[in-house]
């Protein structure tokens, strides 16, 4: 069984985000990119399936700052093949362009399963998974938190609100949008990553031109200027705690001592 996990790198939300001079895109000059957190779950799910049923795991990442880290980290966790897509990703590519580019490469890999993160927080034109599935001619099922493979079929646990799960049978090959792996993504110690950097090879594949057609235009982008904002309580730990106690008391929210 061959499992392919394509990666999207998304802005690290811990950093401040700025809008560029054009006013319709993020300023990418100082943008720190990290792996889309749901892709991390997709990688984990791939390893869980490999551990249970054998097979090969291939990770594909676009050539952006952070891609090598992601690939070597995956290698340290047990990925069999690492592929970096070479092209000018620096200006940012939308889901449509990324999906088309990935499809060209992943189609040739003849995967049984393609696991993507269900979405990334900066998606504005759908998500990579379902678009990729279209270009590969494979079925897509998203919001998945659990997969079992047997006899060319896959049983997927799809999440609905409130914790309800639908068990669906999906014919392989197929693309899944992973919401959460069955277990939290594993950690790998730095020494193993350093080792992988020496022993693992990253294959490079040229992507050619991007085709971003299919997304609606973004005409303006702005940092959220909320119409409402919390009243901020400042001061020392004691002062803030006192004020919060007062807020709770005024509203009758201090439970009688039981």
């Amino acid at each position: 069984m061959h499992i392919v996990v394509p990666i999207k790198l998304a802005p690290d939300l811990v950093e401040d985000l700025e809008i560029d001079a054009g006013g319709a895109a993020l300023d990418r000059t100082f943008l720190r990119l990290i792996i889309n957190e749901f892709d991390d779950h997709a990688i984990e799910q791939a390893f869980l399936l490999k551990e249970r049923g054998g097979g090969q795991v291939t990770i594909v990442a676009p050539d952006l700052e952070g891609a090598d880290d992601v690939l070597y980290t995956a290698a340290a966790k047990g990925a069999d093949r690492l592929i970096k897509l070479i092209g000018d990703f620096s200006a940012g590519v939308n889901c449509h362009a990324l999906a088309r580019t990935l499809a060209k490469v992943i189609g040739d890999l003849h995967p049984d399963l393609v696991l993507t993160g269900v979405q990334a927080h900066d998606d504005l034109d759908g998500a990579v998974g379902p678009l990729l599935a279209e270009h590969l001619g494979m079925p897509y099922l998203g919001y998945v938190a659990g997969l079992t493979v047997s006899d060319g079929k896959c049983m997927a646990r799809k999440e609905y609100p409130g914790g309800l799960v639908a068990e669906m049978d999906v014919a392989l090959p197929a693309v899944f949008g992973i919401q959460a792996a069955e277990k939290p993504p594993r950690y790998v110690v730095t020494s193993l990553i350093t080792q992988a950097m020496k022993s693992a090879t990253i294959e490079e594949i040229e992507t050619g031109e991007f085709d971003s057609g299919g997304a609606a235009a973004v005409e303006r982008m702005s940092r959220l200027e909320a119409t409402t904002h919390a009243e901020m309580i400042e001061g020392s730990t004691d002062q803030v705690a006192d004020k919060l106690v007062a807020v709770l008391r005024e509203r009758g929210l201090l439970a009688p001592r039981g």
Partner: peptide, 21 residues
């Protein structure tokens, strides 16, 4: 969970631009 499984496919079927979230 439902809408995001099919919105992309429908937009490609119709050659319609897609706006999400």
């Amino acid at each position: 969970s439902m809408g995001m499984d099919i919105a992309c496919g429908v937009s490609l079927d119709l050659n319609a631009p897609l706006i999400s979230s």
